[in-house]
Design a protein around this nucleic acid. Structure first.
Lengths: 249, 249
DNA sequence: ATTTCGATCTCGTTT
DNA sequence: AAACGAGGTCGAAAT
């Protein structure tokens, strides 16, 4: 949205396709967040291909190049185009008169085409948004808890590094236990399944080889809880689990 | 959106907070998709916690209980609440007059609270959407390609089952090679990283134990391509790779 | 530009 | 209700 002294909305009710085209183009030029509601079909081709048959939908075009096509259900858009895409808006004066909103990008080559048969509403929103988002309860918070109070993992644990690189990728927390044995810690902010165990296993394997250590390396999964299958996998591979929440209860 | 004979939009420009409250409530009652644009703060508490300072944002409330708070950038909403949530809309006549939109659910317990200081625009959209989405280029398409032409994997490959259950989960495609050796196939629609190798490895390990077969089991990853690290992991664990696209070029 | 992994991931399917 | 994996995942950080 273009920063303006005061937030504003420019709207059109039941415009002609040509009037809608003009309003949308104007909105784009002014750096507004533009929405259109009406009957449309949507075609996508790129990483996959899709066709969406005619229906009434809400289309949002952000000034950063994002396009979102929303129906009446679900959190996710039915179709979309990511930030950074280039747009073209025009009226197709063919057999069926249509308002066409096209969005393309390269790398990867993708094209989204929304064809409005009928437009009920167009709006262009301008405003300012300096408000920052603060979020807590993330994996970073769980990591900080452990760095601050290593005993939460186990008495005597000493963290030595975060994001320690191995040939299999970066280990969340790397340290030593009471007895000086190397410990690889994999953190998850919520209940984990088999995938997290596989990840931990890769890191332990890699570090074992990287160091070709005398002492075997311990692998500890830290998460609020694990699924049955994950627990079994941990057991199979002599990995450990410590229950810990990203936030204090 | 409530099915109506014709798509429609009921809108309000720069309404009072009380008028906005009424329009939003009416829209909810009519099963409309309701949007509001204005200056607001947003608080979330549930799986994590967040606070979003004041800014002009676009809030979408779907009739299925979904709420999306969008800013001017990014494909993802800044804050959201999933389908199935219950809502409450009211005016807070406290120190600062505010229009409050609250959305809650249990399991997991989550609460989103949008507080409008100023509302620029409210709209309630009704329409019908029977249009179906058809998508191609998915993992299912890749699977179908192999089932139809098993030689694409390798000459003599015979698929025996899809989604074959093992103690580690379901294998995408299970079959036998030319020599009668069991083959576990893991499919990915796009270039894969280390995670997919870990997945294949789990399945091969599990099946090896499930069958305690005499002949060792082959694991084949089928994807358009692999990253370097993934290629190395495949090599380390004697797993194989076959390059195949989900769609014919 | 690519790789890698987290995410209030979401979503569908199955148990 | 929980578990498991796909996704046009998105987004961010590092290379």
């Amino acid at each position: 949205m273009t920063p303006t002294d005061r937030a504003e909305a420019v709207t059109l009710e039941s415009p002609s396709l040509e009037a809608a085209r003009e309003a949308i183009t104007d909105g784009f030029d002014r750096g507004a967040l533009v929405t259109a509601f009406g009957r449309c079909t949507v075609d996508y081709d790129g990483r996959a291909s899709s066709r969406l048959e005619a229906g009434d939908r809400h289309v949002m075009c952000k000034p950063d190049g994002t396009t979102l096509v929303h129906g009446s259900e679900g959190q996710q858009p039915i179709n979309w185009q990511p930030p950074g895409c280039d747009r073209d808006v025009f009226c197709d004066h063919g057999d069926a008169h249509q308002l066409v909103l096209e969005s393309v990008r390269s790398t990867p080559a993708e094209r989204l085409c929304v064809r409005f048969h009928h437009v009920v509403h167009v709006a262009a929103f301008s405003g300012t948004d300096d408000g920052a988002l603060t979020l807590s309860g993330t994996e970073a918070d769980l990591r900080d808890r452990i760095l601050e109070t290593p005993d939460l993992l186990e008495p005597g644990f000493r963290p030595l590094a975060t994001e320690r690189e191995t040939s299999a990728g970066a280990v969340d927390v790397y340290g030593e236990d009471d007895a000086g044995r190397p410990v690889v810690v994999e953190l998850k902010r919520r209940r984990v399944g088999p995938d997290a165990v596989g990840q931990l296993r890769r890191y332990v394997d890699a570090l074992q080889r990287d160091l070709h250590a005398d002492a075997s390396i311990r692998g500890v999964l830290v998460a609020p809880s694990v699924t049955d299958r994950a627990a079994r996998l941990l057991d199979d591979h002599d990995l450990e689990f410590v229950s810990l929440e990203p936030r204090v209860e």
